[in-house]
Design a protein around this nucleic acid. Structure first.
Lengths: 345, 345
DNA sequence: CTGAAAGCGCTTACAG
DNA sequence: CTGAAAGCGCTTACAG
């Protein structure tokens, strides 16, 4: 390439205009004459010129980059990333690219200081936070982030303090729909596996929907049929362990997530229980494994395309100076083989 | 935060040193007195100062960022990203972070011009390319990339032209191992599903290993038992469609990837064939679905942690000015239920 | 070991 | 519509 890097000055010289005009032309400024713009663009293309992102970022104090942070439990096996977040990642990356933004991906521990790490360092203009099951531990940090005017959106944690930042699904409604589905199949002793504390608002809301559906049908909500679990297969397996050991009778299991439901099914299979003959099972998320598992898992799907679009759009609006606007997306019942009744395994 | 952004000049003033010393201290330069360094770091921490990445990148002409590009067939459904690459992505991101590099993720079409898009634009110091099944279409571009001195590593395409850039598995050896496993179970008419052309060197090498194992046992390699397929479930399904229609007899199926094997199993199930009783099935990769599927799939595992580490290390070496060094990683046989014999479904 | 100074390649008021 | 000039916040020779 001869003597060093091609810069906007090289393009300017070749086009016979000033460097400022090159900059304007390449950014489609309406200030530039159409013919001038086309000439500049043509020459830039011929010389394979690209605007230096660092220089542009320094001058404009904009990185044109979003950081997508996935929070992991440090105790978890490295390779086991929640597939639902992976799907969100793929779609968020695509939507961001369509809007001219790069996406920086990082797997974080809860202890890190993302606002400063990313925004203050001009590495990213805004942050997308993924990772449920830990809201209790980070809520203080999120509030400080909010107070400092940080640009961030978070998936799932639709709590009042995060109004404007949170995008999630109508978890309560989803819990009602799927519980009604189980009730309609004649199930009455429906176990719920998943934490119902404020630490994980999504699971809590799903549980509330479950309760509402039961009460609406005049079915008692039994304490012994709710077992804590985190959003992991092994946690669902262990929770079912405890449920079986307790001796509580149940004819259906609603997992607070697909991973939990699958873990519970593995434990039930080990106990010799038939699904769906003895026990109907359902979950939430519709991760790929839900359809691969046998029996295939009935679940409440979260639309990761819509979710990713809402996250990116809301974040870009905030970066643009507009107020954030929280959004709740609908969930969709996907009937497969794990519940029995009108469908098959 | 008062009057604008905190810069290295603010730290310098607070610490009573020059701005240059702040820069040196924060980058752990041995030129700086230990006490001075500690003082500077303490003050930087107290003021929540972060080095501006754009400014540092502009000055040093290093972005400290790697681009991880995943190539997708534009015809593919958006949401279906190859899970093997997703696993590679997660591990590569972690290794890069450990070495102080950010990772920019992008899903690309084959037609784009990454060298210029990323390296010339100073968005990334090097590129990790993932995506098999399309090597034939991009080999020219890769050679140009190489000739231009681009910093890139590519997964899988271990061909002579890409010596130094490619990291992959010992696909030929893997093909031999798994074919021997099928032979040891008494299978003799083993179908191979997957392209065997230069377009996908990985599949081709797996096929060569398959042929070597058969020949070694004195078993004929039959043309009618090899069917083309791309690395997708639907493609495996359709390939099995054609194989069944051809009327060729087979007692085992080796998919060139797990996705292909799973697609083929779905088609066989539809045809009423029992796995593993009628037909043994095996694949490559060990994606999560391989263990969720029923019967669980016997496969040759590719270690995504080792692969990610090799990719990142090799790329960083190239960025450092050292020559790249290709590497072939071993594959590991994972016996599950889909082959029958000594294991169960 | 430290500081003063130059300069990386842009964007964006400012002036015309 | 265009250009000359300033300056974003660093890193890195250069000089001491």
């Amino acid at each position: 390439m001869g003597s060093g890097k091609t810069t906007s000055f090289d393009i300017a010289q070749a086009a016979g205009v000033s460097q400022a005009t090159v900059s304007r032309a390449l950014r489609n400024s309406p200030l530039v004459n159409v013919e001038t713009r086309q000439k500049v663009k043509r020459i830039a293309r011929e010389l394979n010129y690209r605007v230096d992102r660092s220089a542009a970022g320094l001058r404009s104090q904009r990185s044109n980059t979003l950081a997508l942070l996935i929070f992991e439990d440090p105790t978890t096996d490295d390779s086991q990333i929640n597939p639902f977040f992976l799907s969100l990642l793929g779609n968020a990356t695509r939507f961001a690219a369509r809007r001219g933004y790069d996406v920086l991906v990082s797997f974080q521990q809860l202890s890190d200081d993302w606002l400063y790490e990313y925004e203050a360092a001009n590495r990213a203009d805004g942050i997308i936070l993924l990772g449920y099951g830990d809201y209790g531990k980070i809520s203080d940090k999120l509030r400080r982030l909010h107070d400092d005017g940080g640009h961030f959106v978070i998936w799932g944690a639709t709590t009042p303090e995060l109004e404007g930042h949170a995008i999630g699904c109508r978890n309560r409604n989803g819990g009602e729909i799927i519980t009604r589905h189980l009730l309609a199949l004649g199930r009455r002793r429906i176990a719920f596996i998943g934490g119902a504390s404020d630490d994980c608002p999504e699971f809590k809301q799903r549980f509330e929907g479950y309760c509402a559906a039961l009460e609406n049908e005049g079915v008692w909500v039994r304490d012994e049929l709710r077992v804590d679990a985190e959003n992991q297969e092994t946690s669902g397996f262990q929770a079912m362990d405890r449920l079986l050991e307790s001796g509580a009778q149940f004819d259906a299991v609603l997992g607070a997530s697909d991973l939990i439901a699958i873990g519970a099914m593995k434990r039930m299979r080990k106990a010799g229980l038939s699904i769906p003959e003895d026990v109907s099972v359902a979950g939430f998320d519709d991760i790929p494994a839900a359809s691969y598992f046998t029996p295939s898992l009935t679940t409440m799907r979260q639309d990761t395309r819509a979710a990713a679009e809402a996250l990116v759009d809301n974040l870009l609006a905030m970066i643009d100076g507009q107020p954030g606007q929280s959004q709740l997306l609908p969930m969709e019942l996907v009937v497969r083989g794990s519940c029995g009744g009108r469908d098959r395994g």
